[in-house]
Design a binder for these strands. Structure first.
Length: 489
RNA sequence: GGUAUCAUGGCCGAGCGGUUAGGCAACGGUCUGCAAAACCGUGUACAGCGGUUCGAAUCCGCUUGAUACCUCCA
């Protein structure tokens, strides 16, 4: 483990050397989805980003416990105090049990993540399964004097907390600014200050998702689940906390406040935030109604899409940008990603067929070092990919006999490509239909034999007819120096 | 209004004071019966205006524009 990984910590606004609390082990918590709708392109960014973190840490030899929650209670819709639970609303509209909705969209979320080749987290806890832990946490905060009960609900006393700690340590906000700038919202009379946030909410009579507590029949506050579940599975202080930038405030800020009161320390050492995916320069979001679901991408059914885009294209598209930069959706960009990915993956097949030379004209060791440098520098996947394309150039040049590599370098390059492309970037070949299909294999050999004969006789009409006909069946035939190759598009 | 981030060639997207990012597209060439693929070559990017410096896309200031958060959202 001689690699030194640097990560950008939102807490310090700098890149910091990553040193885990317990040597050789990493605890990572990432805010997962609220399951009340299909996963859209926006959801894929944190999933892929932290999948990359997970994969790379494992590659470096760490034993990683990766916890990603599923939020199935507690998020209020619209106005904070007047709204109803998102899950409950959807359930009532469709006359389903809330848990039925949760199950349905969880399954669909998992399905989309599987397609994107996102590894499953070690633990995927649900908020509804941790009500007791959350109630205990509310009690602890009340006992410590940092919360107050009001009409059956319990609110976190931000002003009091801020006297001894700093509310705003993560987001850079200053409490006075919040006070003077918070908008007027209806029904906030229960709170002492507008910036106080609920840690327990009394349920309205029509509210279906409710649990008994010392204060009221109700449900836990919005930010509490992550504090409770991360502490339960990763300890009172753990290594990495991740999520989308949009969660920075108030969600993560409030998590820090709650956990600090309960455990007297900042819950996580490194706070990582991925940037947003935008569409026409604007954030893709549920509430903005400008999102495209992942299934729509895979099927090409959304009106903004010129064609279908495969899961690996989406994954590669995301990895081509650094996780902290905004990434703008466009058909052009997706198609560029699609072609680039195809070229990258094709080179692996070419690589497997190369024969060794007596000398090496390229420095594979140096290439490998550059790949690690890129990843160690705050997971700079675009630089990594640029380096891999340098590898592609080398592979193709060797194939064209313009360069050569020794067996040692060839093996090193194969190992390099397998490690970075499959294990770390998590890409995978998508069309392996031709593999193992003996019928197609046999037919193709037969057809290409006829064509080879025609070509030998300079019967271009016949040979082109065969090639065109196969092209119509989405089989492309290419005549190379080393013979004929074909593949399914 | 407050806080934060950003503005790079046709498109996407790296860059953290001096050396080629990379992908896609385009053009020219090599190869090929023709294609395709591949390889080689080509683009005088850095929002604007000042400043610091021997030297700035990169640091500082101002201007303009954009986005995010401040309310659920990845």
């Amino acid at each position: 483990m001689e690699n030194t990984l640097f990560l950008y910590n939102t807490l310090s606004r700098t890149k910091e050397k990553f040193v885990p609390i317990h040597e050789g082990h990493v605890g990572m918590y990432v805010c997962g989805p609220t399951v009340y709708g299909d996963a859209h392109l926006g959801h894929s960014r944190p999933a892929v980003t932290f999948d990359l973190v997970f994969r790379y840490l494992k590659h470096l030899g760490f034993k990683v416990r990766y916890v990603r929650n599923i939020t199935d209670v507690g998020h209020l819709e619209n106005d904070a105090d007047e709204g109803e639970d998102k899950i409950a609303k959807k359930a009532r509209l469709e006359e389903l049990e809330p848990m039925e909705v949760v199950q349905y969209f969880s399954d669909r979320y998992h399905n989309s993540m599987d397609k994107l080749n996102v590894l499953k987290p070690s633990i995927e806890p649900r908020a509804s399964g941790h009500i007791i832990e959350q109630i205990q946490m509310v009690q602890t905060i009340l006992d410590a004097g940092f919360a107050y009960e009001s009409n059956g609900s319990v609110y976190f006393d931000v002003e009091k907390y801020n006297k001894e700690n700093r509310y705003g340590i993560l987001s850079g906000r200053i409490l006075e600014d919040l006070l003077s700038n918070t908008r007027e919202l209806e029904g906030q009379d229960e709170k002492r200050n507008s910036f106080d946030f609920a840690i327990w909410k009394k349920a309205q009579p029509e509210h279906i998702m409710r649990w008994p507590s010392p204060w009221s029949d109700g449900f836990p506050g919005w930010h509490l689940e992550c504090s409770a579940m991360s502490a339960k599975y990763l300890g009172e202080q753990f290594d990495i906390h991740g999520g989308g930038m949009d969660l920075l405030f108030p969600h993560h800020e409030s998590e820090i406040a709650q956990s600090t009161v309960c455990h007297h320390q900042t819950p996580a050492r490194y706070w990582l935030h991925n940037n947003m995916i935008t569409i026409n320069g604007q954030k893709m979001g549920k509430s903005l109604g400008n999102f495209i679901t992942l299934d729509e991408f895979f099927a090409g059914t959304h009106k903004a899409l010129e064609k279908a885009y495969s899961p690996m294209t989406i994954r590669f598209f995301i990895l081509m940008a650094h996780y902290r930069s905004p990434l703008d959706f466009s058909n052009e960009a997706l198609q560029a990603a699609e072609k680039g990915l195809s070229r990258l993956l094709k080179s692996i097949v070419t690589l497997s067929k190369l024969s060794a030379g007596s000398t090496s004209t390229s420095n594979i060791t140096e290439l490998e070092e550059k790949c690690y440098e890129a990843m160690n520098d705050d997971l700079n996947s675009p630089i990594l990919i640029a380096n891999l394309f340098e590898g592609v150039r080398i592979i193709n040049s060797v194939n064209d006999q313009k360069e050569s590599l020794t067996q040692v370098d060839l093996d090193k390059l194969k190992n390099l490509f397998n490690t970075f492309i499959f294990d770390i970037l998590g890409l995978m070949p998508e069309s392996d239909q031709q593999a193992g299909n003996e019928v197609i294999e046999g037919l193709m050999n037969l057809v290409l034999e006829f064509r080879a004969n025609a070509r030998a006789n300079k019967d271009w009409t016949t040979s082109d007819k065969i090639r065109d006909a196969l092209a119509g069946l989405k089989i492309s035939v290419k005549d190379t120096k080393n013979g004929v190759t074909w593949n399914l598009d």
